[in-house]
Design a protein around this nucleic acid. Structure first.
Length: 606
RNA sequence: GCCGGAGUGGCUCAGUGGUAGAGCAGUACUUUCGUAAAGUACGGGUCGUGGGUUCGAUUCCCACCUCCGGCUCCA
């Protein structure tokens, strides 16, 4: 897909020719299209209240209140009708006309639209001018940013879907009807984009997970609770082994703590009030109240406290592949990306405050190393987000402005020093401190937090964590919460989509499929199988009464990296014929040579 | 949780107010094959669950469950 290399020159600004960047050009085009959508909708159903309609990454949306105009819900079947209306109106949209009005005029114009009135009040409060833009017969409250000439520039448009969305994004507000759409300068570009969406669907981890038999869900077990098959569990186990082995190499102490605990533990930690909504309710047993743990921090703190710690012991890195339980709202669940039980490669690093920077640098190095082994490319597949607190949100964040400033600066410095590309996100921190999030893009370009590094100056206080310093006095450590490869389930989802199910050999649940050509080759195939298995290769043999071609096809569809074909020739020479899932015929070799090849591939995690 | 859409054999899907069909997969037999689908036959579904309307419901109505697209939230 090739967007226009240069945006058209402005001909009406009078300021001479200027060039916009491509994205800005598309944004203007799409924002214009959002106006067009609102025009079409209000023409079809006059009492509809338009609210806001911005351009977004790959298109635009507009939120409407249909409660006064449509006596039914808007449905997908209405989209072609609206689209048709948009196309009818477009020819009369040769330019946008801007005018500035007084608050009184604006309120008069939009007197029937409470949403616009609310926006007007906000603009007035900010002391900004109130501008209206008109194209065709439709005038809307808008701060600008349109195509010069919609009719000549919008070459192709499409409405994509309908969704609910809360007014101003707050679930306390009324739910509006959102219509998503996109537009491009040419039909070709629109078609390419739609194709891209189709391709992304094929790589969806939920589809591939089913096709390759990696995991399933069961209504009876419950939603958000994936069941991993032997194959899926194999992928998972390899990921866990990788994380644990690497962490142990880097000086982490791997521990095991129970997945449930007394509610009191979370009351002491202070998690309870913040996370109550996402915790499973307490189980009463005898005189105790237990909950399934939504996080591991306090368990690790108890291990820390189980003995006296010296400054010489710090930094102390306690790690665990820890199963955690969170009662996510049902509508938020999605495949392996959002589940209700997950295993986090979790760790808590107890350190002296002045060690924090070094500790975090080392954590970032671990994350970069792990990502490179998993195949995630920095800047392409993932980027860093510095998630900050908001001093004004006193309910959301622990109150200690000076500590927040200090912590945020440390994280910012570390990211700068590590030359890690990052952006800052206000109001995304944990309640106990700011954090660095590793944001990974999934196959449809949607970003999710994959791993995090959090700076915590609150919980050590709550738990009275101590160490004995050089001077013999008790002091308080700080804690760095971090995850190396995140929640195994979510990371698996990213990997499935990244590789489209064709995992690198080390992660493949079946690395080699042995294909005997005829029944008489099965014994020899079995011998080869046993040899591979005893060398720890994950191999299977296809003994079905199918043609070799059919077996190859099935192995190929299962994305098995290597197929070993054995027939008369191989049997007589005690060799194997190797084929890759890329369709490459590697010819005949000895089993030993093949083992050397595959083992080095597994070893290097290539 | 909220708004909208959907749920038919293991999978992909067709279909109807008169108790269901195809392809793939499975099983059996025939075939024994040289790098992406051999042939024949057979078995398999209380049409998501529970109510209701009806002489009769998979089909119409209601509730619930699950999934999908969003919103909110998040590892």
């Amino acid at each position: 897909m090739e967007p226009p290399t240069l945006a058209p020159k402005s001909s009406k600004t009078g300021g001479g020719a200027f060039f916009m960047d491509k994205q800005q050009y598309l944004n203007n085009l799409r924002h214009s299209c959002a106006h067009l959508l609102a025009a079409a909708v209000t023409e079809l159903w006059p009492d509809t209240k338009p609210t806001i309609g911005p351009a977004i990454e790959n298109g635009f949306y507009y939120d409407f209140d249909f409660s006064q105009s449509l006596k039914r819900a808007l449905s997908e079947e209405d989209l072609p009708i609206i689209e048709e209306k948009m196309r009818q109106l477009l020819p009369s949209w040769d330019h946008f006309e801007k005018r500035e009005v007084s608050p009184e005029e604006a309120k008069e114009i939009f007197k029937d639209n409470p949403y616009k009135l609310e926006l007007i009040d906000e603009i007035v409060a900010k002391n900004e001018p109130i501008t209206l833009y008109k194209a065709g017969n439709f005038e809307d409250l808008c701060r600008g940013g349109h195509a010069e000439s919609p009719v000549t520039e919008i070459g192709a448009l499409k409405l994509l879907s309908i969704a609910g969305a809360y007014w101003r994004g707050s679930e306390k507000n009324k739910m509006l009807t959102r219509i998503y759409g996109t537009c491009f300068p040419t039909q070709q570009e629109l078609d390419n984009y739609l194709n891209q969406l189709e391709e992304a669907k094929k790589k969806d981890h939920r589809k591939i997970g089913q096709d390759l038999g990696l995991f399933v869900f069961s209504d009876l077990v419950g939603k958000g609770l994936p069941l991993f098959t032997a194959k899926g569990a194999t992928v998972r186990r390899e990921l866990e082994r990788f994380a644990v082995d690497e962490e142990i190499k880097r000086g982490y102490q791997h521990v095991i703590t129970p997945p449930l605990a007394k509610v009191d533990l979370y009351k002491v930690s202070g998690h309870y009030p913040y996370y109550k909504g996402t915790m499973y309710p307490p189980m009463k047993i005898d005189e105790e109240e237990l909950i399934l743990r939504p996080m591991t921090c306090p368990h690790h703190f108890m291990l820390y406290k189980s003995q006296m710690r010296s400054y010489k012991d710090l930094p102390l890195k306690i790690a665990e592949v820890a199963q955690q339980f969170r009662y996510e709202k049902s509508g938020e669940l999605s495949g392996l990306t959002r589940v209700r039980v997950f295993a986090l490669t979790d760790s808590h690093i107890f350190c002296i405050p002045n060690q924090a920077k070094q500790v975090i640098l080392e954590v970032l190095d671990l994350i970069d190393f792990a990502n490179s082994k998993l195949g995630f490319v920095k800047g392409q597949d993932y980027r860093y987000r510095l998630s900050l607190g908001d001093r004004k949100e006193e309910k959301k964040y622990y109150k200690d402005d000076a500590a927040w400033d200090k912590a945020e600066n440390i994280l910012r410095e570390v990211l700068t020093e590590a030359k890690a590309p990052f952006y800052e996100a206000p109001n995304e921190a944990a309640f106990y401190g700011p954090k660095i999030d590793v944001q990974i893009k999934n196959v449809s370009g949607k970003e999710e937090t994959a791993f995090t590094v959090q700076y915590d100056f609150v919980l050590p206080q709550r738990f009275h964590l101590k160490y004995i310093d050089e001077d013999g006095k008790e002091k308080q450590p700080i804690v760095i919460h971090r995850s190396s490869i995140g929640a195994i389930e979510r990371t698996m989802a990213f990997l499935i989509e990244k590789y489209g199910g064709a995992f690198p050999v080390w992660l493949s649940p079946v690395q080699v499929q042995i294909i005997p050509i005829a029944d008489r080759h099965q014994d020899y195939g079995q011998k080869v199988l046993e040899q591979l298995k005893s060398a720890n290769i994950k191999a299977e043999i296809d003994k079905r009464q199918e043609s070799m071609q059919a077996k190859i096809r099935d192995a190929q569809n299962q994305k098995i990296p290597y197929m070993i074909i054995v027939g008369d020739r191989e049997q007589n020479e005690n060799k194997i014929a190797v084929r890759t899932r890329a369709g490459q015929d590697l010819g005949v070799s000895s089993i030993e040579d093949f083992l050397t090849r595959i083992n080095s591939e597994i070893e290097s995690k290539a």
